[in-house]
Design a protein around this nucleic acid. Structure first.
Lengths: 202, 202
DNA sequence: TAGATTGTTAATCGATTAACAATC
DNA sequence: TAGATTGTTAATCGATTAACAATC
């Protein structure tokens, strides 16, 4: 949870920097997200002494520190597996690029897509996936394939050296202990909503 | 968090029922998700006494109870706002329908899309959104619009009577206290991954 | 110096887990 | 009855918050 908040702080600091704000206090930062100022200070202090007593935090400096901590001070090569509607949406979502995530290869089964290039990024066949991942030393994979294919694709990616997976398939993937896996589960999100609606109807 | 777990249990129970399993213990359920059996029992017991001592839980019965609790025993009309790549991906994602969420209207700005029907669902213009939401008593909105438009659209949806929003725009939306808001933030998901990669590189 | 705000310790709160009597 | 498993209480753990000395 701390990491997620660091990510949120970073976005806020980017905005503050654009707005020309030079310093920000834990109190100000906290108010923007309904958090406690002690929590903000603790989150930040965990990684170092970034603040100045009596002043707060220098926006530019703190932003740079957090970006470094989150690994956003470098570019990450990403392989996007699955180029249907969802894959396409993720590919065109500019928020990723801005933070240093660069899709360098797209994998799909569809013969009419294979061999094409999308904004200079090649669409390759599944059978070439492992080779490409290894050759380019890609560490991050975004999985936008159907449930049926998800586990097999994951196993292959891991074997090829992938170390972090962002999974959109609504299924529980098994990965080795040293591979990071984040799931985005749309059904769970919707079901928490209907729970609250159903509850207030009761 | 309890609600998210209920959602996960439900999916598991659906699978167990398909597999012809009649009863399941908290221990078995817990093992599938690296949870503690006491937690499973506590989650379930919070909503009623669904188990049988010495036996466990009847799969069919528990599934039905959880579906009722999560509001999955009825159909929810949903308005999908934004029909770009992401909106399109969400629309075609069958997982929603299966759980009783039915997109009954699609809203988009693009004149070439407006007036069309996609799988019997009409694509309507923004200016007709509020009327449609009111007329059909739609309570849930899925937001797949650009950041710039998100807050304005949300305000209009809320004014029209929407009570739960699933937001994909990477921005903090302001909604009244009685409106449920879930955010799916893809940047945060990726950044937690790069944090771990950066950390292990340090 | 006086005012502001940090970093950090101690207190609080809530969530998870262990343990076990109840009971099928 | 013996074995299994629940529902629930008490213990533990971790995360959040309050408070405050340190210090700009």
């Amino acid at each position: 949870m701390t990491i997620r908040r660091l990510s949120i702080y970073t976005r806020c600091l980017l905005q503050l920097e654009e707005d020309g704000v030079k310093t920000v206090s834990s109190q100000e930062l906290a108010e923007r997200f309904n958090l406690n100022s002690a929590q903000v200070r603790k989150d930040l202090a965990y990684f170092g002494e970034f603040g100045v007593r009596g002043i707060g935090y220098y926006v530019a400096g703190l932003k740079a520190e957090l970006q470094r901590i989150l690994g956003l001070d470098r570019e990450w090569a990403v392989v996007l597996v699955g180029f249907g509607n969802l894959g396409s949406a993720l590919f065109h979502y500019k928020g990723f690029t801005r933070q240093g995530f660069k899709v360098v290869a797209i994998v799909d089964e569809n013969p009419t897509k294979i061999g094409r290039e999308v904004e200079r990024v090649p669409v390759i066949a599944s059978r070439d996936m492992a080779r490409e991942v290894k050759a380019r030393g890609i560490q991050i994979a975004i999985l936008a394939v159907p449930v049926e294919a998800a586990q097999a694709v994951t196993d292959e990616l891991v074997a090829a050296g992938i170390r972090a997976v962002l999974n959109f398939a609504p299924t529980r993937l098994r990965v080795p202990r040293d591979v990071r896996l984040n799931n985005v589960d749309l059904s769970i999100e919707l079901e928490t909503l209907s729970f609250y609606l159903a509850k207030s109807a009761r």
